[in-house]
Write a protein that binds this DNA or RNA. Structure first.
Lengths: 117, 117
DNA sequence: ACCAATGCCTCGAACATCGATGTATCGGAG
DNA sequence: CTCCGATACATCGATGTTCGAGGCATTGGT
């Protein structure tokens, strides 16, 4: 663990978007997503397995990602791919994130800096 | 309404922080917070009253804000002030938000731009 | 031989949010 | 002077999400 995880609440609703983003770089299986997110975010963000797997299944149902089983020795892994529709959805969500981030910054940063300086 | 509200999920968990931020600028009553957030965020963020009031009551219980009734003609308003402890908490939450924002950007932006260009 | 890490998954409890609803006052349009 | 939309506070139940705990199996290192 490199950093300290942020308050769980902040992460709410972002799980699917983060998963889509990671999958846009390369296909991965669930556990790999957990490790990748932790690495890429320097330990700030984490997927809980109890949250991630249901989300992954939902994305699969919505056909935003596809999955197929791969054998690694006697071990089975479910590898997820970003689908075309998922790529569109990711673009949409990324734009939404940018809008949200800007809006929160305007409200929060303004309030803090008024008393930090 | 100036902009389009973002997906509700993204806003989850940020209600209290946004309220504290707005109150750090000036004391306000509930309905005023609703209007201020909408104005400051250009319609991107909105407090639902059913969410805001319980949150405000919770912040009051935790002594992060204080409240007192003010009369405006025959009308009663409950005006909320940011307390000292609330100011500390806001600073803490603002720092956490900055950390979260940076982490998400690293994951999301990287993924999107790889396919936008 | 054992144990930690990998790997997929489900379940129920806990929690937060939202829409609907209720009450009441105020100001302006007709 | 009457009606209605905006202001203003608040609660409640339905809904949805998240998480911790647990189950099960394999693999690699000691």
């Amino acid at each position: 663990m490199i950093g300290v995880p942020v308050d769980r609440d902040l992460q709410k609703g972002s799980t699917a978007t983060l998963a889509l983003s990671l999958l846009s770089r390369s296909p991965m299986h669930g556990y790999q997503l957990v490790k990748e997110l932790e690495a890429k975010s320097k330990g700030v963000l984490t997927f809980k397995e109890g949250t991630l797997y249901p989300v992954l299944h939902a994305l699969e149902r919505e056909e935003l990602i596809t999955a197929h089983w791969e054998a690694d020795g006697g071990r089975e892994r479910k590898v997820y791919h970003l689908a075309e529709r998922g790529r569109d959805e990711l673009r949409r969500r990324a734009a939404e994130w940018a809008e949200f981030r800007t809006a929160v910054d305007t409200v929060v940063q303004g309030g803090v800096f008024a008393y930090v300086g």
